[in-house]
Design a binder for these strands. Structure first.
Length: 285
DNA sequence: AATGTAGTCAACCGCAGGCAT
DNA sequence: CATGCCTGCGGTTGACTACAT
């Protein structure tokens, strides 16, 4: 496996190797990261004896060599998450990728390009997207209304944390609402403290989110539908007595690996009407 | 069976922001 | 405070593969 992969045109520019990585290079990089950890990519080439730029090393590691990467095709769940997050964040692939454990921004970007950019399942996608945006609008209006009511009444002296604790209805925390079409509406308030803490590092990115299209709004709360999905999943699992709730982890990947081309799966995925039961638990997971 | 086309994946490039000096 | 370097991100490109004609 030593260097048969030519064809990227340039093999070496200014002393830097370019093009496909060899297994030898991969080994060197893996070994280096194992010993020194991630980061300091520019020094990797020297320390590891790689004729690769820091950028190239980082890219290779992040997109291909990282041990926590989930190989295999994007599952329908992940796909729906991608669509929702893209509706929220646009082409912020890295942000979207953070909500999909084991997936890279590059992977998601490629996936989006090939599947949605050319409008393959456009009707479903657009419908779901439109529905999602509409739901978000309604939800935000509702939230705003609640905030106004609260500020007007002034009786809830608990401060700004109050709404998070209460979630606008107490029992709603950790669940999904169901709108008049039966679709799952993820409530901002379901964001658990742990999730907030986990997201705190990137809060500054997400606080001033600009919605796509006509839905321009500022997010007062940290928006992470995947986190919400996790919680929905968890809630569903709890309701079923399942206990642990793994989200789009490897199990999901395994489960859907064989059926993701199935049109029926697509249909059921986007027709969320049958997905959320009366208790608000999401049956997808 | 050969050829053309679309899909997928891996990698590169340029830019911007953050951080150290 | 200014500058330079490093890192990360998004866009783009090229090669390979699968499928259709």
């Amino acid at each position: 496996m030593e260097g048969p992969l030519l064809g990227w045109g340039r093999q070496e520019v200014d002393g830097w190797r370019k093009g496909p990585w060899t297994t030898q290079e991969d080994k060197l990089l893996i070994e280096h990261v194992r010993q020194h950890g991630e980061g300091r990519w520019n020094s990797v080439s020297k320390l590891a004896g790689l004729k690769r730029s820091g950028k190239s090393c980082r890219l290779r590691w992040v997109n291909y060599l990282r041990p926590d990467l989930k190989r295999g095709k994007i599952t329908p769940q992940e796909e729906s998450i991608i669509v929702q997050l893209h509706a929220l964040w646009g082409n912020r692939w890295s942000t979207i990728a953070r909500s999909l454990p084991g997936r890279t921004d590059n992977e998601i970007k490629n996936y989006w390009r090939t599947h949605f950019k050319k409008g393959k399942p456009s009707k479903n996608i657009e419908r779901a997207r439109a529905r999602f945006l509409k739901q978000r609008r309604e939800m935000m209006q509702q939230t705003q209304q609640q905030q106004e009511e609260q500020s007007l009444s002034g009786q809830l002296g608990g401060g700004e944390d109050q709404q998070n604790q209460d979630g606008g209805g107490g029992a709603r925390a950790g669940t999904a609402d169901v709108d008049d079409r039966g679709s799952a509406v993820v409530d901002d308030a379901v964001l658990a403290p742990t999730v907030v803490a986990a997201e705190a590092g990137q809060h500054h990115h997400q606080h001033d989110l600009i919605m796509h299209g006509d839905a321009m709004m500022e997010m007062d709360l940290i928006m992470c539908p995947m986190s919400c999905a996790l919680l929905i999943h968890g809630a569903a699992a709890r309701q079923q007595g399942g206990g642990t709730g793994s989200c789009c982890g490897s199990t999901a990947s395994d489960e859907y690996g064989s059926s993701e081309e199935d049109g029926a799966t697509w249909g059921s995925l986007w027709n969320l009407d049958g997905v959320v039961d009366d208790a608000g638990a999401c049956a997808l997971w």
